[in-house]
Nucleic acid binder design. Structure first.
Length: 215
DNA sequence: CACCAGGCAAGTA
DNA sequence: TACTTGCATGGT
């Protein structure tokens, strides 16, 4: 059976990405860098409560004040700056118009996002997949760890090569990529944290995981 | 107490 | 180019 099906049978749909608006999802992508989502929710809640979770609010607020509102995510000084960089990008390149940004071609938008200080490949792809609904596969530390421990990829594999491994072997739309990545994170959280403790991991029986959805 | 979380950029040699 | 380090709160 395929990797995706095994995980879906075990956990069911994960209903990602949390967030009511595209901007909220984009902000969440920055705030969750190397940080648990639990800590992000508090920061999002703070921003929403003060009416700051919109282009205007995040444009106006000084970086130092923004940092105070997002303390719970850790790295708050760094992330306040990164959030401002993201907002400046939307304002300067798309006149602060989210709909205009969302009409951009996928490759062009990815390049633009990657040009922002503080937005790397995982954050850019998370925005593309979950906010912009593009069929882009998101790679994260769990994806690497799971495949590496199953002997499927070398230690030094790059982000882009790991991403190609999935995208070249999947006939996928954004919906599949969405659920696939969410299920990988869920599986990693439950069974691949710290030292390997496989237990009842749905992928345990696989020496080589079959990535393909259909065969 | 130690360890790590849905990374990234900057510094070092 | 190839490692290493700083960022920092909060849960297990």
């Amino acid at each position: 059976m395929e990797m995706f099906t095994l995980m879906l049978n075990q956990f069911g749909p994960q209903h990602w990405w949390p967030g009511e608006t595209e901007l909220e999802m984009m902000a969440g992508a920055v705030l969750t860098q190397n940080t648990s989502w639990n800590n992000v929710e508090k920061a999002i809640s703070n921003l929403k409560g003060k009416g700051l979770l919109n282009i205007e609010g995040l444009s106006r607020i000084p970086s130092e004040s923004l940092a105070e509102e997002i303390k719970s995510v850790g790295y708050f000084n760094i992330k306040a700056g990164r959030l401002k960089n993201l907002i400046n990008f939307i304002v300067e390149k798309y006149s602060g118009d989210m709909d205009q940004l969302l009409m951009e071609k996928t490759e062009t938008l990815r390049e633009g996002l990657l040009s922002i200080k503080g937005v790397g490949p995982e954050t850019a792809d998370s925005i593309l997949l979950y906010a912009a609904k593009r069929p882009v596969f998101v790679i994260d530390a769990y994806t690497y760890r799971i495949l590496n421990r199953h002997g499927m990829v070398e230690d030094q594999i790059t982000y882009d090569n790991l991403q190609s491994l999935f995208m070249d072997n999947l006939t996928g739309d954004a919906g599949l990529f969405n659920e696939f990545h969410a299920l990988i994170v869920r599986t990693g959280k439950d069974f691949c944290r710290g030292k390997p403790l496989c237990g009842s991991c749905p992928l345990k029986e696989w020496e080589k995981i079959n990535i393909q959805k259909s065969n």
